[in-house]
Design a protein around this nucleic acid. Structure first.
Lengths: 160, 160
DNA sequence: CATATATTGTAAGTATACTGTCAATCCTGA
DNA sequence: TCAGGATTGACAGTATACTTACAATATATG
């Protein structure tokens, strides 16, 4: 059984479980999940983005994202407006209330992020982040939903 | 947006996503998910374990595990037998077919595990595993479903 | 022994995550 | 221009992952 507890797959699942748990605990004053937060941040950074491009920017499944947006809409944090040029597309914007919620929750999320790594020594944190960044980047294509930040943003007239 | 892509929470979610993707790809000949595989391994190691203890041993949510076991049962890989001593409890065993499936899928899972870390250099893999093992262990209590391997196994008369 | 408390499995409810499929719409190329 | 292919959002279906609640059963305590 020891082999199980040091297998990368087990460690990644477990750490994700822990990370979500810490996030929810820190942000329990807001009815926001990690995914919903990520969507808010991305819509704030790229107002007028559509759902398909948003899914590429934050590496979420497109189908799942539809439900996420629906929930954000019903909480009045996000609004969908039809695009003029393309009748298929619905453009995403934060509402006033959404922008306000984002401002309030950001420091809590920062604290959650810090807590995830807190048990390690500073040098270990730095090393882990570097290795994980590298690994996620190099494994990008292995994911079912590869990150396509640059491609997705070309049409928005943003450079980064 | 760059801060998002180097945040620990993002990296953990992404890596979990990638790990599941690789697992499914390597094991697609079998209709088995990572969770179902983990349950099979644990039941194989601890035959006659009950669902509550199993959830502590592999750090799964108890309610979710019920559905997982149900699926394994309907695939005829696992069987539940009522306990004699305690009428509430159902004891878990691998079927012959379950043990055979486990033997066949193990090497595929090993390959999947190796693929997850392959993009890193050997030294980096070792360092990452060590840091992750440490972090998951030290953060154990932060999870909603802490690992309780030793406690859970006391009643089974196993030493480890 | 009787009652309060705890445990076990189960279920309902919510939220990711993914697979497909589909109709509406857009775009391309002959 | 117009037919074929691609894109977009929506939907159905499966599988985690968690919460709360509940009935049946066990156990601890008076």
């Amino acid at each position: 059984m020891d082999a199980v507890y040091t297998a990368p797959g087990y460690l990644f699942r477990r750490m994700q479980q822990i990370a979500v748990s810490i996030f929810v605990e820190e942000c329990k004053a807001f009815d926001l999940t990690p995914v919903q937060y990520a969507a808010l941040v991305a819509i704030h950074t790229h107002p007028g983005i559509d759902a398909t491009r948003l899914s590429a920017v934050i590496a979420f499944d497109r189908s799942t994202l539809g439900n996420v947006i629906e929930r954000l809409e019903s909480k009045n944090l996000v609004e969908r407006k039809p695009s003029r040029g393309d009748k298929r597309v619905k453009l995403l914007y934060l509402t006033k209330s959404g922008a306000a919620a984002l401002r309030e929750i950001m420091p809590l999320v920062d604290r959650a992020q810090a807590r995830m790594l807190q048990p390690l020594k500073p040098a270990g944190r730095k090393t882990l982040l570097a290795l994980m960044t590298q690994l996620v980047d190099l494994n990008n294509e292995a994911s079912r939903v590869p990150l396509r930040a640059e491609d997705a943003l070309e049409h928005l007239g943003k450079s980064g």
